[in-house]
Design a binder for these strands. Structure first.
Lengths: 207, 207
DNA sequence: TTGAATTAAACAAACGTTTGATTTATTTTT
DNA sequence: AAAAATAAATCAAACGTTTGTTTAATTCAA
């Protein structure tokens, strides 16, 4: 029963942190929503801050390898790799929107120094891996000379922009706010987002 | 002496909120950094939350009219308008990075319902104003058929991405972390960011 | 002399955390 | 296989701090 409860606390924490922020979520809120005793968070994680670290560390590792795998795939052209990276990021971000909002907050607010460095390390690797692919395409003269790191910023930035809040996302979809629609689990929107980014990146990269 | 002190509190609050978040900043922190008495925040603003509202409301109004002015300018072509909008946003965001981090947090965390709605209202207007210009260009057949709201998300998203933290921004510039460099006040980087976004948008929009 | 500005001190409420007792589960011994 | 012993999980209650806010006295300026 213990491992399930530990995972339950983490999932509930992701939900609450993404909604109210880390400092804005009290352990009492968390315990109540997860239906566990207040003492359980400290029992399993040691402290509220270590719970936060556990959440980030567990998930950060998952994303790390994705682009590297694609980069090393010899059977794909550069533009195919880029298209797959875009789709992978959109799918990942839309599948775990709450978690990514928590990560966004961690990047925005640098209260926890060690954790912040760990996140920056991963971001750095992702930027550099993406840049390598682009620059290979430029050397092969299949890509135009572009600002590769900033193009990566545009891709991730676009996704983050719609991930900010469901309501804001609805404005991008319907051009007006909507409280009752969940855009993140909508397949039509997912495709639209992927298509937009891919077309934009194609226009920017290809002759 | 009073108006200066009120402004001093607001400026100090923007600095601290952007660094530690709203919930992560205590009135004692704020009072100490601004070198005022703890009671002054409540004396001038009524409460910590109303101070936050005052910050957002004051600045939100400023941004509002900018795009509308450009939209109504008859002497500019559509692509010229878009270029000016991009430059205006970059200049504004890089000039007040702390304030925009505070706004980012407000969008990410929806703790203060009224304020959140106000921010969403402004965002909605900006998206729709931008979209109008694009769709006019599409009707005139000077622009390709693009996803206008999502293109706006890409523009703002790119800027937000480098605005997340100075350290992360340095990774986009130097491809490695750097704690001692302030990218936001660097003219070279500002130009590079404007150029990248403009070129990307040109490629996406123009035949 | 009046009203605004400023202060130190105190307020109750909420916070993260710890305690020590109690229940539940697992292992060891008979 | 039953009983005893040990370990893990859960709990209500309390801990000491910190929080945002208020008070009532004092200083300052008009």
């Amino acid at each position: 029963m213990s491992i399930d409860k530990k995972e339950l606390i983490m999932q509930t924490a992701i939900s609450l942190f993404s909604e109210k922020g880390f400092e804005g979520t009290s352990i009492r809120d968390l315990a109540q929503k997860a239906e566990v005793n207040i003492a359980m968070v400290n029992y399993y994680f040691g402290s509220k801050e270590k719970l936060f670290e556990a959440i980030v560390e567990e998930k950060v590792r998952y994303i790390k390898g994705r682009i590297e795998d694609l980069e090393n795939d010899k059977n794909l052209t550069e533009i195919e790799k880029i298209d797959l990276i875009i789709e992978a990021y959109v799918n990942r971000f839309l599948s775990y929107p709450d978690f990514h909002k928590v990560m966004e907050q961690e990047m925005l607010v640098s209260q926890r120094e060690d954790l912040h460095q760990k996140v920056i390390e991963v971001v750095t690797q992702n930027i550099n891996n993406f840049t390598k692919i682009i620059e290979k395409g430029i050397r092969k003269k299949v890509f135009k000379k572009v600002d590769a790191p900033l193009l990566f910023a545009s891709i991730i930035g676009t996704i983050n922009q719609v991930l900010k809040s469901k309501q804001i996302c609805c404005v991008y979809i319907f051009r007006e706010s909507n409280k009752d629609f969940n855009p993140y689990s909508n397949e039509q929107f997912r495709k639209r987002l992927v298509t937009h980014i891919q077309q934009m990146v194609h226009s920017t990269l290809l002759q």
